[in-house]
Design a protein around this nucleic acid. Structure first.
Lengths: 248, 248
DNA sequence: CGGTTCATTGATTCGCGTCAATGCAGGTGG
DNA sequence: CCACCTGCATTGACGCGAATCAATGAACCG
């Protein structure tokens, strides 16, 4: 698992300008991200510490254990977060999509590694300056606490999935999660683009590639989903999928 | 799984007085809980919305989906948090010990059920009044965000455990977690009281009672731990246990 | 068009779950 | 004080769901 390119590479300096030039007004994720709670003047202050960063697929944003220098807001693309065991076993703890915030926990070191799944555009904030800003903008801090709460709820759902659900139930839950988040971003619930590989899905669900593949095939044969392409799923019987996801 | 007694039962009214009478000065968990960041006058304000609650083992604090009326601080005893699937499969998402805070997420409804593992003493706060207080005491809100961050890190560790670790590795991780938290509370790292049942441990680790029991026996035969009683574990070879927990 | 990467499918294995029996401690009543 | 019950925990025999090992297929790309 080689580090392919770093967030602080070539693009960043050029893009910092861009953050100042183009106001956030025409930002697609404006109303779903952290920024939503900010008044225009507060937003302007946030923008002064913002760097827009672009990354290619497979680029490493940071690795577990490194000092946490930046927080980020995903503007475009998808990110995966994961933890590794020394022998290489991997658990993906989450996927981030546009509007998601990277680093709500505000820890001094990263608790997980992060890698670009697709081409990526981020708004990046230096952690120290962001924390200073938090002290001055209580509504921003409040918003962060709210987002942390949402993440905790999602984490608990994922524990239930990993500890107690079957392979079928896991995949059903996963597809519904991706679908719901697509809707939250104003995209159709189906057909659903799946930017991540089968290996990523497997490592997110605590399964193997083979089991994920077999389970996709099963669900397709059962008429619950369709797979027009490998990276696209159509949810045919949403209710059946929901029953499955809840163990019904 | 019957509801045996509720938090708002007999004890509460009598104990509310107690919260006013006895100051927090001689509280054993004062310096490890939320309260640690509060100035004396702030603490006094928190105390005005505090009710001390005592509960017996197996008492239900609240159930998943109920409106979240209270937040609590565990003063004495242990709590388990869990989620259920419709068919009864259960995943325990966490154990709380003295000093731990119940409800950092600040959600409108409880995302999990909570039940007393042992005799329990809690400081309980009405959520609405607590949120109002948060707006007035930014340091309290900041502390809550910090605690939410810690919970998120723990949740991610647990996902790695549930998704990728073997039964031996899970039990090793569990024992070390309990041990570390005992130390954090100023108690010895070993021998370790295990107030929860084998069923609770199983549901926390995504295993069955039988597998937990067999794995305990294994670790005992390997000389890594000793089990002087069912509810007490001695960590004999801590390093071996740590290697195991990390997949070594 | 060969090479590379990823997904699918099949055959087999294996760790943990399930089912069942036994052990063991604490509580209760005769 | 002991017989009995009851609720865990332990141990054993067996089965199953997902992992592993292996082969094939399909898309992409220089």
């Amino acid at each position: 698992m080689a580090i392919q390119s770093r967030a602080d590479a070539a693009h960043a300096p050029a893009d910092r300008l861009r953050a100042h030039e183009s106001p956030c007004d025409d930002c697609a994720i404006r109303e779903t991200s952290v920024c939503e709670v900010l008044e225009p003047d507060q937003l302007a202050r946030l923008r002064t510490i913002t760097t827009v960063v672009r990354l290619d697929p497979h680029a490493t944003l940071f690795q577990e254990g490194e000092p946490a220098e930046h927080l980020s807001n995903v503007v475009e693309g998808a990110v995966k977060l994961y933890k590794l065991l020394p022998d290489g076993r991997r658990q993906i703890t989450g996927f981030l999509f546009p509007g998601d915030f990277l680093g709500v926990a505000l820890n001094k070191t990263y608790a997980y590694s992060a890698e670009a799944v697709t081409k990526l555009r981020l708004c990046r904030f230096p952690r120290q300056r962001m924390e200073k800003l938090l002290h001055e903008l209580p509504n921003l801090e409040h918003r962060l606490l709210e987002m942390a709460g949402n993440e905790l709820v999602a984490a608990q759902d994922q524990m239930l999935l990993l500890g107690r659900k079957t392979a079928r139930e896991r995949l059903a839950s996963f597809l519904l999660m991706v679908s719901k988040r697509a809707v939250a971003r104003g995209q159709p619930a189906s057909p659903l683009p799946l930017p991540m590989s089968r290996a990523d899905i497997a490592d997110y669900l605590g399964l193997t590639i083979e089991t994920v593949s077999r389970t996709f095939t099963q669900l397709r044969k059962d008429g619950v989903i369709a797979l027009p392409e490998q990276t696209r799923v159509e949810i045919v019987k949403r209710e059946a999928l929901e029953d499955l996801a809840e163990g019904g």
